[in-house]
Design a protein around this nucleic acid. Structure first.
Lengths: 195, 195
DNA sequence: GTCTATACCCGGATAGAC
DNA sequence: GTCTATCCGGGTATAGAC
């Protein structure tokens, strides 16, 4: 939807290269400490060279998260459409606290409508909620009583729990996010069927 | 618990003054765009003067969140011990997206053990989980069957949902966080009683 | 179209004067 | 306890080389 900001249009090979390097660096470090210059060094360029492809730092970070999403989708299929496998994805993100931090950083910043990642984030959440709600609704008896929790609300809660658990996990790595999320999924399914 | 970092020990009146000003500014703007100098200007000082009281920017931000917690506790009683009134608190935070962003920012950064806010955050979460789990366990039949979800897990999920809903709310302000959270509370209580 | 070199400004931090 | 001065790193805009 949103037009590209910088003077780029198609994904050049160099762009991919930068993105992969950035993904590695942020996976190791998180976002706040990593400068554009650090990323540039990794690919043997100057900061201006990197920014030529991405416009500015915020756009670069957003692209990194998009790239992560793409990789995840390749690895787990379309997780967003399947709340059950969301647990598997969460368990995987366990190995990259840096990207979890990056995600939280950008999610907070992207609330601003002018932020380059705003549209992407808004659509990503919207799509996830929609797909999850649909999947949950399929488990509902078509002519049952009005459920205690409707599927839209259940979808919001599942997504919220996934995000929130990551915060707790950053501070307390022993937490089993996947198990918690699966339990919530079960509980919500039950609530969807009973009034 | 954690020792003060900067060259300060007791809460001077000036410190309180700075804190209040910072709270107002961040409430309006969020965190990323607000500089220490902005806060300093508000209280008629230079940035160095402010930093004299707090050591560094991160410590200042952590102190701001602590101050917010204190204000919340004064307003709603000890929310942390009462998951039901957590919904009321959430509804209140609706009016200050800037502080929500600040919270997410610092929560991500405080994952690092060296971060000045690390101990505070870790203890805050630990305390909330403990108190919530205890409150939930009280609603459990003492000799019932093993529940579908134990109280510790339910506490983690409630806290996670509260945090995660804020992220969604930043992007989609129509979301009724309090209603969602209350629904989750009900569902988890039901699950605690049934196997 | 791609990248470097350069310069600018802002922001955080520190040292030392008052 | 607070300010001034200063330093440095980082983001960004521009010009120009290739």
């Amino acid at each position: 939807m949103s037009a590209p900001r910088g003077p780029y249009a198609k994904t050049s090979a160099k762009r991919e290269l930068i993105l992969r390097a950035a993904l590695e660096i942020y996976a190791e470090a998180g976002s706040r400490k990593v400068s554009v210059r650090d990323v540039a060094k990794r690919v043997g360029m100057t900061d201006a060279g990197v920014l030529h492809h991405f416009g500015n730092r915020e756009s670069l970070l957003t692209a990194v998260l998009q790239a992560r999403d793409t990789l995840t989708r390749e690895k787990y299929g379309d997780v967003l459409a399947n709340p059950a496998s969301g647990a598997a994805m969460l368990a995987d993100s366990v190995s990259t606290p840096g990207l979890v931090k990056l995600f939280l950083d950008i999610a907070a910043a992207a609330a601003e409508p002018e932020h380059p990642g705003h549209d992407y984030f808004a659509e990503r959440y919207e799509r996830f909620r929609h797909d999850t709600a649909e999947s949950l609704a399929r488990a509902q008896p078509p002519d049952g009583p009005p459920p205690a929790v409707d599927s839209a609300r259940a979808a919001r809660l599942l997504l919220a729990a996934a995000d929130g658990l990551q915060i707790q996990w950053l501070l307390e790595p022993e937490i089993d996010m996947a198990a918690d999320l699966e339990a919530l999924h079960r509980v919500l399914l039950a609530a969807l069927r009973a009034s």
